[in-house]
Simulated assay, not measured.
Amino acid sequence: MPSEFELIRRYFSRATSHTDLAGGDDAALMHTRPGMQLAVSTDLLVAGTHFFGDTDPHGLGWKTLAVNLSDLAAMGAEPRWAFLGLTLPTVDEGWLSSFADGLFACASRYGVDIAGGDTTRGPLALSITILGEVPTGLAITRCGGRAGDDIWISGQPGRAALGLASLQGKVSLSTTAQAECVGALQRPVPRIELGLELRTLASAMLDVSDGLLGDLGHIVECSGCGAIVDVSHLPLQPLLDLGVSEASARRSVLAGGDDYELLFCAPPRHRAALRQLAQDSGVALTRIGELHERDADLMLREADGRLLAPLFSGYDHFA
């Protein structure tokens, strides 16, 4: 059986492009570009909690990095370096090879150096610490929203939740629809390019990992605002076209996790620029509501104008 260091050398030591000293020493060495701040994030994926144990390892390698890239996208940061922590119950070299290929495919797509990490024996768990750069003062936080700002969502939220539900046998999808939704769950697309474009347009932003309403609550709390989400503006039709009920589509969009779309706020004066950005980027941007004064709380506006408190929120690991 190969040693820990042989596994790292064989599967996770590949050429880097902007790292002074990568894996193999006690620490990596890198330097930031002038005028930049570091943006740093970490995520942990655990078998049985975040993914099924039999998940395709190539897709899992991609997702392990992609969910961290999404955090940088939400800050308007450019990804640069990543460090992998890998806990393995056994050494399966076929699994490792496929996982590493998926990880490095994602790294190559977004210009990330895998600069180091660690492996150990234990229950299957995957952790990435990622570092990126953003021009000083241009990072987009969760706290910049102001009453009157529009609320926007990128792409098509809800597909990943339907993919998970289909794998759990909770919803029945056609073969084509299941492939689309499971693909969204297992191979998310981090909105890096969109995040960079939103630096001068968005007032507050985060990525949707635990459900739109639950994550919007973080912006509301941090920005000291209330929010109203217009149900009739939600992008439900693409999900209805997959054959699910309106109730299932609505819950998937509002409370489904693992979307990794960008949820952001922007002043109304940027509407035209955002519509142009959507057209130029090919990424749908949907205006779904607005921020209000604090006493408005977080509410849903039905098509008939009624304001209702949400009956569900997002995912909580400890709820």
Rank of each mutant, 00 (worst) to 15 (best):
I288W: 05
V46T: 13
D92K: 08
T176E: 15
A249N: 08
L69N: 01
W62K: 03
W95A: 07
L298F: 06
P79C: 06
G243W: 09
A266I: 05
L124I: 03
A177H: 03
W62A: 05
E221W: 08
A147G: 09
S108K: 11
Q168L: 15
L263H: 02
G48F: 01
R9E: 14
L38K: 10
R251C: 11
R14Q: 10
Q279S: 13
G257H: 02
L242H: 06
Q186D: 12
D280N: 13
G85A: 09
P157T: 01
R80D: 00
D92Q: 11
G122N: 01
L307P: 08
D297L: 12
M36P: 05
A249P: 07
V67A: 00
L88N: 02
T90A: 13
R33Q: 14
G183Y: 09
F312E: 12
S248F: 04
R142L: 15
F12I: 03
T129E: 10
I8L: 15
V67G: 04
A273H: 10
D101E: 15
R287D: 03
V134E: 00
A160P: 08
D304A: 10
Q168G: 08
P57C: 05
Q186N: 14
L103M: 12
L198H: 03
A249K: 04
L274M: 11
L291Y: 01
L29R: 14
A125F: 02
M30D: 07
C222W: 06
Y110S: 01
D26I: 12
G132D: 06
D316E: 14
D241I: 01
L38S: 09
A100E: 03
C106N: 02
N68C: 15
L86G: 05
D113S: 00
M36E: 11
V67D: 02
L274E: 05
L7I: 15
L240P: 09
D20T: 12
D150K: 14
I8C: 04
L201E: 03
T64D: 03
E180N: 11
R306N: 13
A28K: 03
F12A: 01
A100F: 04
T64W: 04
V91T: 13
L236Q: 06
S281G: 03
V182M: 08
R10E: 14
P268C: 06
D295A: 15
A284H: 00
D56K: 08
L308Y: 04
G94E: 13
C225M: 05
Q156M: 15
N68S: 15
M1P: 09
A161P: 04
H218I: 08
A319M: 08
L291M: 12
D71M: 12
F318Y: 14
A202C: 10
L185M: 11
A147R: 11
A247E: 13
I151Y: 04
R306E: 14
L173S: 02
D280V: 06
L239K: 04
S98Y: 01
A160Y: 06
L254S: 01
G35D: 08
R80S: 07
G35W: 09
L84M: 06
A249H: 03
E293L: 14
I128T: 06
C181N: 10
L198W: 08
F52C: 08
E93C: 12
G314W: 01
P123E: 09
S127V: 07
P57M: 00
G243E: 10
A77S: 09
P310M: 01
L308G: 07
D207I: 07
G289T: 07
E293T: 15
P238M: 08
L96M: 12
L240H: 11
P2R: 14
E193P: 07
P268E: 05
S245E: 13
Y260N: 11
P34L: 10
